[in-house]
Amino acid sequence: MLPSFSALQQDYIRLWFLVQHSLTSFFKIRQHYPKLLHAFAASEYATWQKLGIHKNHLQRFQNFYSETEQQKFQHCLRQIEQSCDFVLLDCDPAYPPQLLPYSDRPPILFGQGNAQALLQAQIAIVGSRKPSPHGKQVAYDFAYYLSEQGFYINSGLAQGIDEAAHRAALSHQRTIAVMGTGLDQTYPPQHQALRQDILSNGGAVISEFLPHTPPLQHHFPRRNRIVSGLSLGVIVAEATLKSGSLITAKIAAEQGKTVFAIPGHIYSEFHQGCHQLIREGAILIDHPQQAVEDLILPAQWQAAHAASAQTDVLPEPLNVPDHLQSVFDQLDWTGQTLDHLAQSTQLDAAALSSLLMELELAGLAQQQAGCYLRCR
């Protein structure tokens, strides 16, 4: 259960409640008010109108301080406290830095389990809800291999390919589920035991949705952008031409993520979606190590080091900001876990994650298979 909220968390949740998960309205209002608390004064109704906020959200704002709406909001807060182990705002140091570049990132993430898992190297495995036995086995095998290599396997807790990927990664305690509902419920309901296994084995279950949010059809593409956004790359294990996993692949490509597709028999309807992705530019893979090589050894990184090894030109001196130098000095070329770095730097996980994120944004460090190492 989550301890009491900070003032800023309450403001984020209040606004998220008022705009009912609307990213457009949320970011308009947050950008306008230097202190979000000021957005909720009754006198600000006209300002919300000028910002072009949807009429439904304006109506909720107008009614917010009625006894009925206040009771609903307080009930929502209690539900979040009961169902969440952590709440991450997009301004928190512990918020997954891989989501920050996206304008449609979730401003708030509700989570259960191990929040540190979200900061680790992840690969998404997605596919059909009704796969062939062969497809489920392939998804299981790929997830088992990649989680054994140190990657967290990210998926949507759905039936079929998602389930197989989660179960395989449980063997190495490295899996994350992104929900298309509030955390007070499980969808599909028969995956309640699987969800508990994820939480009991070092994983995390997260959602951007408030409690009592039902599994509506349009929620799942929203969920999929988080699945792909958290991940280094997306593997489509098996998909028909109408599979929702093709939406995930499309979103991943738009995010600049590497999309992989596993081929199958040319006459099999189960694989037509994967074949379509390959025609459109997805990388064909028939072994999980191929994904590791493409994601962990980018061509630019290899070329830069190969070029420097073949010349006598001295590299340019690094310009490491003073406040990052002590953490940078602890990094090497083979990689270290967050726990190891926390011991060597004597920093808590939140502060260390924030500094590592700055090093990554500066091009001085990168994450590989759950470890941090130098880029230069």
Rank of each mutant, 00 (worst) to 15 (best):
G244V: 06
L246A: 10
L246D: 04
T248F: 03
A249S: 09
A249P: 12
I251C: 06
I251D: 08
A252V: 09
A252F: 15
A252G: 11
A253N: 09
E254Y: 01
E254N: 07
E254H: 03
Q255W: 10
Q255S: 02
Q255K: 07
K257H: 08
F260P: 04
A261G: 09
I262L: 13
G264R: 05
E269Q: 15
E269W: 11
F270W: 12
F270P: 01
H271G: 09
H271W: 14
C274Q: 08
H275L: 15
Q276H: 11
G281R: 07
G281V: 06
I283E: 06
I285T: 00
D286M: 05
H287A: 14
Q289C: 02
Q290C: 00
V292T: 01
E293T: 12
D294G: 00
D294W: 09
I296V: 14
L297R: 06
P298N: 12
P298A: 08
P298S: 12
Q302M: 09
A306T: 08
A306V: 10
A307V: 06
A309Y: 02
A309Q: 01
A309P: 00
Q310T: 02
D312F: 07
V313I: 06
P315W: 06
E316Q: 15
P317V: 02
N319S: 13
V320M: 07
V320I: 15
H323L: 05
H323W: 10
L324R: 08
Q325M: 13
Q325C: 07
S326C: 08
S326F: 14
S326L: 07
V327M: 09
Q330S: 04
W333R: 04
T334K: 12
T337Y: 02
H340L: 09
L341Y: 10
A342L: 02
Q343V: 05
S344P: 00
